[in-house]
């Protein structure tokens, strides 16, 4: 499998980048889908993308502590400017998908499985 960087993935899947730089230096290989923060804390692995519909500030701490490669917020949900500022300060990449979680995860699964 050829490794694909996050910049390419974001462009190919039509995600928007809300926070984060140097996406071309991040190479996600898998993703985790959950809206339960302790589930992500317990089961997600470092480097994964995190697909969620949660948009409160605590997702930044979870992504940062777990060293996830990026958060993918689904369903056209718009995080508050404070969350974006917090993400930038912590160096957490936040992407947005205009599709629901199921479709977003499906697209990611096919894309990363290639």
């Amino acid at each position: 499998m050829e490794k694909v960087n996050l910049k390419q993935l974001t462009d190919d899947l039509g995600f928007a980048c809300l926070a984060g730089e140097s996406l071309n230096e991040v190479y996600p290989e898998s993703a985790y889908v959950s809206d339960l923060l302790s589930d992500v804390m317990g089961k997600a692995q470092a480097g994964m993308l995190w697909v969620t519909s949660q948009i409160h500030k605590n997702i930044i701490a979870v992504a940062s502590l777990k060293e996830l490669s990026a958060i993918v917020v689904v369903n056209e949900r718009t995080p508050a400017p404070e969350l974006i500022e917090h993400a930038k300060a912590e160096g957490v990449i936040v992407l947005a998908s205009n599709l629901p979680a199921f479709e977003t995860a499906g697209k990611l699964y096919n894309y990363l499985d290639k």
Partner: peptide, 30 residues
């Protein structure tokens, strides 16, 4: 809740500076 995770992040940064293995740091962070 807006400040939840602050202490954990501070400890994590300190452990990184002490060159503790990333795997152990991740466990402690959780």
């Amino acid at each position: 809740f807006s400040a939840a995770g602050r202490a954990s992040s501070e400890v994590k940064k300190t452990l990184k500076q002490l060159n503790i293995s990333p795997q152990v740091i991740r466990k402690i962070s959780v």
